[in-house]
Nucleic acid binder design. Structure first.
Lengths: 200, 200
DNA sequence: GACACAACATACCAATCGGTATGTAATCGC
DNA sequence: GCGATTACATACCGATTGGTATGTTGTGTC
């Protein structure tokens, strides 16, 4: 009975199962037992790779939540020729209109709302992710501003903060109403807000 | 040893302690033991007034969260002579800038984010509260629209949805950043959005 | 090939959870 | 005043929680 061992891969499997479990139930209600049942592993494996449930949660924040947000919502802006327009397109992206994603909500927002008042370590890491996101929007607006596409009296920093906030607000409301239509209607209003920052 | 009994009052005390506990830790992580310790009562008392933790939570939603929102964010709009302007003032209300309120977040939003995907009974009641709120904004905008204060091409329904969403988004982000300044900056942007709906 | 260590599995633990069964005292109806 | 019922208090319960101690097996190293 020889069983192959791939520690890096099992670690990743634990992270993915934990991400799913946390996305469904939140961190505090996330059950180690469920994660183990999902992966088919046992406690020995999990506590070999992660010293505690909290450490596992923080790893999920950094290596899953943060990375996914980078790939989906930040990277597209970096290569954009007309960042502000790419931003508006991003707000209407079909990627975010997935049924289950709307039902379960934005993983970043979920964790922020749950953990921020409860655990400082979580809060700080989540804030860092949030700030990277906000900064990406700010730079996108500023680049478009220098290109004359965004009105020059616009406060890009404050606008970026508001866009991130409103985005999370829309996903949160749509999550409660369990409606893709609500999500679209809400994000459409946000799009027109961003459009109001443009020239003409 | 005669102890006076005021069942209505003890029920209210349980509700208030539960509201505090839930506001701090969320519903699922809220501890019955903590609530009892806070009130000085015992399990016998609590389970006499409420059949289960879930029923207690739903009562908190209806009798505490819903009522508070009515008094603070809806009633002020009913008597307003210029509803849209009252709405803008409401967004800058000092009442919502209380330190602890920002640290712990909006009770309605907290519960929506936590409970919507997990429990349908919670979701429905929270949605009702949310819809009443949205409707109050919609009617405020519409009244101002008929008075010629809000531009007539504005979609009041969609705008109200967005205002509620963005508001909750702002409180959520400020809660994570634990900053009254962030809250103010964010709500200020929302104010200017609403202002952009006005005539001229 | 033997030794060392990493990568797991198994079994167990105390603490906490929501909930219940039972007991007791205050209050209300007559 | 007396029985019935309401309003609690006390003690207990099974289930689940995150965590640990110990065992076993694969794997790289010399």
């Amino acid at each position: 009975m020889e069983t192959i061992r791939q520690p890096d891969l099992t670690r990743q499997r634990i992270l993915e199962a934990s991400f799913k479990e946390i996305h469904r139930h939140g961190f505090q209600a996330a059950s180690i037992a469920n994660i183990l049942a999902d992966t088919g592993l046992t406690k020995g494996a999990l506590y070999h790779h992660f010293p505690s449930k909290k450490a596992l949660g923080l790893a999920v924040v950094d290596e899953m939540v943060g990375v996914r947000l980078n790939e989906r919502n930040i990277r597209p802006l970096h290569a954009a020729a007309h960042p502000a327009h790419t931003l508006i397109e991003l707000l209407g992206d079909k990627q975010h209109q997935d049924e289950e994603y709307i039902r379960l909500g934005c993983p970043l927002n979920n964790l922020m709302q749950e953990m921020s008042p409860v655990d400082e370590a979580f809060r700080i890491r989540l804030t860092h992710i949030l700030e990277r996101w906000q900064l990406a929007f700010e730079e996108a607006l500023r680049r478009s501003q220098m290109a004359g596409e965004v009105r020059k009296e616009v406060n890009c920093h404050a606008a970026a903060l508001f866009i991130v906030s409103a985005w999370e607000g829309c996903t949160g409301i749509a999550k409660n109403m369990q409606s893709v239509d609500v999500y679209r209607a809400c994000m459409s209003q946000l799009q027109s807000y961003v459009a109001s920052l443009l020239q003409n």
